[in-house]
Structure formats: structure tokens, C-alpha cells
């Protein structure tokens, strides 16, 4: 497979998708209801605050919007955008589903990746897209992430990854499952040559992504309130016949249980990542 890439002209701020869909209030200004504080927040205010409610609730953010908020202006250069999903198992309805989500998400796959500068330091970055089949991992996601880690090894670059995923994409069956092993092996090689990998877990990070590259980073961060877990809450409730507390599988819960390093609010992430890169000599062993 040829390593083809192209330069994106600019990171334009784009529409926030469903989470930012305007709700027209009586006063006329578009608002969005916050599921945490239940207040209607003017959309303009949410946008100005990186889709974070004044109460602290972090709305879901589209992948390209996120890249524009954490990377230096005009520094993002997309890689592997030519790798796309197909329907290898002839799974019923999968192709139609792909067409629908491509239109709705304005993305071609559930992850976008490339190189970028964060605080003037070069890194590889991947951001998963919740609006594309809830960031589920099929062959294309696995291939793009593996290729990115291999690219990072070749160019001796650190990797910053934002995860959001419902897990493996069942429409690709076993091929999806194997992406967990494939990406993990690439992360291991990247780690073994002394390069830094930082993961930022966003809502929700679950299933096969939690059980592979999300939990394999040197430093694991999360957004406040993000769901982080392996099995789905409903499955656990059915298996154990117990009602789970509200905070179960939240970022705060996994922090308390020792599985992530720190919760970082959205507006501090860029500065924080830049500082981490600096403290790791741009992501390499000293």
C-alpha cells in the first residue's frame, strides 16, 4: 500500500453536528439544552467555549473541530484519508449504513489522522469520530491507526490520540476483532523504540477500543464525565442483575480505580499536551 498523503489547506471550524443542532427558543437565539444542568444554553456561547456548558458538561465534539482546538493553526496535515471501509463479509445493510453515516458525519471513516504541531512541536495525531457509527473500529480504523503508528516510528514522532468508540464494528465480524491485535502490536513497536504516546479518552470510550489502544498509552488522560469502560452498562446490569450507580464507568470512576492518569478539561488540553510533549523532549527518549 503506498503511503500517500496530502496537505489540507486549513482547519476550518465546522458545524458541530447533531450535538450542536440548534434548538430554537422563544427569544429567537438558537439554544441547546444541557443534559447535566438542564438549562438552555445559547449556541453561540457553547461554540465560544469549545462546546462546554458553563456547568462543566462536555458536549461531544466532531473530530475536525477537535483538531482545530488542540493543534496549532494550519499545522494539521492529513494522512491515510484514502483508506476506507468496504463490506468484506457482505453483512446485510452495512453498505447503506456506511452511506448514511458518511452523509450525516461528513467524514469518510470513524477516525481521522495525520501530523500536526501542538505548541510548535510536531506530532502524529488521531481523532476518532463519534458521528461515524459511534467511532466503531472496523478494518479501516485499524488500518489507519496502525499505519499512523508505523509512520510515527519511521519519522520518530510522538502520537497523540483522542478516542471515542462504542467498540469493534460488528458488521466486519472477526476482521474488526483482529484490529485490536493489529493496532496493539503497532503501539508496542512505537513504545519499544522509546517514543511517547498520549491517549485522551472522550465520551464514550468502550469495548474493543478500551481493550486495545486506548489503554496502551504511556499517559492516559480523559475528559470530565466521559464514559470509560469495557462492557456496556446494560450488559452488566443484565449479567449481574444489579443496578449500577450513576458514576460507574465515568472518567472520575476509572481515575479513582487507577486506570487513567488525569482528567483534563477541554480548554486546557492543548496547553497540557504541549507541556507533556516538551517534558518528553518532543516525545522521544532523552
Amino acid at each position: 500500500m503506498p503511503l500517500l498523503n496530502f496537505l489540507k489547506p486549513e482547519n476550518l471550524l465546522e458545524e458541530g453536528g447533531r450535538s450542536a443542532a440548534p434548538i430554537q427558543s422563544d427569544a429567537g437565539e438558537p439554544e441547546k439544552n444541557c443534559p447535566n444542568c438542564h438549562k438552555d444554553i445559547p449556541l453561540s456561547r457553547l461554540w465560544a467555549n469549545q462546546l462546554v456548558c458553563p456547568c462543566g458538561y462536555h458536549f461531544r465534539m466532531k473530530a475536525r473541530h477537535r483538531i482545530s482546538t488542540v493543534t496549532d493553526k494550519n499545522s494539521y496535515c492529513e494522512l491515510f484519508s484514502n483508506i476506507k471501509s468496504c463490506n468484506p463479509l457482505d453483512f446485510p445493510g452495512y453498505e447503506d449504513k456506511l452511506d448514511t453515516v458518511k452523509t450525516a458525519s461528513e467524514e469518510e471513516e470513524a477516525v481521522i489522522c495525520g501530523t500536526a504541531m501542538i505548541g510548535k512541536q510536531k506530532c502524529c495525531i488521531f481523532v476518532m469520530e463519534s458521528y461515524f457509527m459511534m467511532g466503531s473500529m472496523g478494518s479501516a480504523v485499524g488500518e489507519k491507526i496502525t499505519s499512523l503508528f508505523e509512520y510515527a516510528i519511521k519519522h520518530r514522532l510522538p502520537v497523540i490520540g483522542f478516542t471515542v468508540s462504542g467498540g469493534a464494528r460488528m458488521q466486519e465480524g472477526l476482521l474488526s476483532l483482529m484490529q485490536m491485535a493489529k493496532t496493539s502490536a503497532a503501539v508496542k513497536r512505537h513504545s519499544d523504540v522509546g517514543l511517547l504516546y498520549v491517549a485522551v479518552l472522550t465520551d464514550p470510550t468502550t469495548g474493543g477500543v478500551t481493550a486495545s489502544f486506548a489503554m496502551e498509552a504511556d499517559i492516559i488522560l480523559a475528559e470530565p464525565g466521559a464514559t470509560v469502560g469495557f462492557a456496556g452498562k446494560r450488559v452488566i446490569e443484565q449479567t449481574t442483575r444489579q443496578t449500577l450507580p450513576k458514576e460507574f464507568q465515568s472518567a472520575e470512576f476509572v481515575l479513582e480505580h487507577g486506570f487513567i492518569d488525569k482528567i483534563v478539561v477541554r480548554k486546557e488540553q492543548k496547553k497540557f499536551l504541549a507541556e507533556l510533549l516538551k517534558m518528553h523532549n518532543g516525545g522521544q527518549k532523552l
Binding site: A181, M215, L244
Partner: peptide, 24 residues
């Protein structure tokens, strides 16, 4: 892998991830 409260509290996802990485 077991879907339970204790399993999640003790990092089912992390345990599997570590095996995938180390076995490679």
C-alpha cells in the same frame, strides 16, 4: 471476558489490552 462490576473496577479493558500488546 466477564461483564461485571468487579471486572470493570479492576480494569477488564486494560488487562486485555496489555495482553494484546505484550503477546505481540
Amino acid at each position: 471476558a466477564y461483564c461485571g462490576i468487579g471486572a470493570e473496577e479492576r480494569g477488564q479493558g486494560q488487562a486485555i489490552a496489555e495482553n494484546l500488546m505484550e503477546m505481540s
